[in-house]
Simulated assay, not measured.
Amino acid sequence: MEIIRSKDFTATRAWGAKDIANMNGISTRLHWTDQAYKWHINDGQEVFVILDGVVEMFYKQDGNEKSTILNVGDIFYASVGTEHVAHPIGEARILVIESEGSV
């Protein structure tokens, strides 16, 4: 049993994470960042939930680059093969649910 106050979580580096749970090969992690990640494609599906802050999510759809602004409570779902990169605007805390060991 653990209670996690996401707004209190920080990391020593961008995209530092707290492992919350691993259920049947699906990991749930809380990330803190103030810097963009890198363009990537996950090995499986990914659910990306904004808990604190604002993130501009860039993604490619039908070969075209697009972006959307994600605010607190917004969820970005990346299906298998979705190339994407998150750019926080300031600090952000993000809950990420994905296959264990995914990028």
Rank of each mutant, 00 (worst) to 15 (best):
Q61H: 13
N71M: 02
G16C: 08
I20W: 02
T68Q: 14
L95C: 13
G101K: 04
V72Q: 15
G73S: 04
S67H: 13
M57F: 01
A17R: 12
I50V: 15
K38D: 11
T68N: 10
I20Y: 03
H87M: 15
K38T: 12
M1N: 13
K38L: 10
W15A: 08
A11C: 11
D52A: 02
T82R: 11
T12W: 09
V103A: 15
V54P: 03
I69C: 07
L30G: 04
T33S: 11
W39G: 10
H87S: 13
I20L: 14
E83T: 08
R5K: 15
I69V: 15
Q61G: 08
N24M: 09
A21I: 08
I94P: 12
I94W: 10
R29A: 06
R5T: 12
E56A: 00
I20K: 01
I97W: 02
V47F: 14
V103H: 13
Y77A: 09
K66Q: 13
T82M: 13
N71E: 08
P88Y: 01
L95F: 09
H84V: 07
A92C: 07
G90V: 11
F76V: 03
E46G: 03
Q35G: 05
N24T: 03
W39E: 05
G63Q: 00
R93S: 06
I26D: 03
A86W: 05
N64C: 08
T10K: 14
G73K: 01
V85W: 09
E2Y: 07
T28C: 14
E83D: 00
S102E: 00
R5M: 13
I75M: 13
V103K: 15
E98W: 02
A92R: 03
V85L: 13
H84K: 12
E2G: 12
D74T: 01
Y77L: 14
F76I: 01
A92S: 12
A36K: 06
